[in-house]
């Protein structure tokens, strides 16, 4: 079982600097926000799929296919009731669905899927270490970056302990699957308490290990990793920025919108 989404490939995208990856995914998020016409958003989403294929990240898309599908489906079903448009298609009492609101809904579904997709590509090509290192290079204070990377490092450890705890309590007859939500909440106590205690003990030991290696978050330090921004990195950032500005100006001229809102 692998909890993280990183895929250990060696594509051109994997080799980008982590700063480029972080800024790049932020730009992709912004781009996803620009249009609200389903055709335009679909075009952007297709671009993302191409990007995912080039970065060999498609296996992760496959892993979350149900989530992506549900996002699009629910958004398409629900948004029409909240967005109002001028051309009514169907109405029932106070509920009303217009042509524009339906199109808007589809666009919103695709936009959400694009968000998830952009994030997935990022996580597929970035290790936790790179991510932290990138944050540090982008001037995030070291103690915060360290806490962040340690938290990431402990996720699989705690998940493993959690799985063992679940098995231990199931073998004592705990039935985690039946009952209503309140009964279920009560059943989490036998799982939560041991996990909590485990986490406290573990972090206590870790603190000692850190100290005995001379760790001092305030002191100046060096890094083994030495990421370098190369020409490809500047190229990618320039390209993405240009693309974003181009899309923005299209939208400001009135293209790619079904409703005059975000």
């Amino acid at each position: 079982m692998n909890i993280f989404l990183y895929l250990d490939e060696n594509t051109w995208f994997h080799r980008l600097d982590s700063r480029t990856k972080i800024l790049g995914v932020l730009l992709l998020f912004c781009m996803a926000m620009v249009f609200n016409h389903p055709l335009y958003v679909a075009g952007f989403a297709l671009g993302l799929v191409w990007l995912a294929a080039a970065a060999k990240a498609l296996p992760n898309f496959w892993r979350v296919r149900y989530l992506l599908f549900l996002l699009v489906a629910f958004s398409t079903l629900l948004w029409p009731f909240f967005a109002k448009g001028p051309t009514p298609l169907w109405s029932w009492g106070r509920l009303q669905v217009s042509r524009e609101s339906l199109l808007y809904a589809i666009a919103m579904g695709l936009r959400l899927a694009s968000f998830v997709g952009a994030g997935l590509i990022f996580l597929s090509i970035t290790t936790n270490e790179e991510f932290t290192q990138g944050l540090i290079r982008l001037r995030l204070p070291y103690p915060i970056a360290f806490a962040f990377s340690t938290a990431l490092r402990l996720v699989p450890t705690f998940a493993g302990a959690g799985a063992t705890i679940v098995q231990a309590q199931i073998s004592r007859g705990l039935d985690v699957e039946s009952g209503n939500i309140f009964q279920r909440a009560g059943k989490f106590i036998p799982l939560a308490v041991p996990l909590f205690i485990y986490a406290i003990r573990h972090t206590n030991m870790l603190a000692m290990a850190l100290e005995s290696k001379g760790f001092n978050p305030g002191a100046p330090r060096t890094w083994y990793y030495d990421p370098q921004m190369r020409r490809a990195d500047y190229l990618v950032l320039a390209l993405l920025t240009a693309l974003f500005l181009g899309m923005l100006s299209l939208r400001l001229q009135g293209y790619g919108q079904v409703l005059p809102r975000l």
Binding site: T127, N128, E129, T150, A209, K213, G214, N216, A219, Y224
Partner: peptide, 27 residues
């Protein structure tokens, strides 16, 4: 298990030297 700080072997082994602020080449 409880002593390891780094997600990768490299990070783990380099960690103490990074704390001491040694030059990268020496690490």
């Amino acid at each position: 298990e409880r002593q390891i700080v780094g997600s990768y072997v490299l990070n783990e082994v380099a960690f103490g030297l990074e704390n001491l602020g040694l030059p990268r080449q020496e690490i």
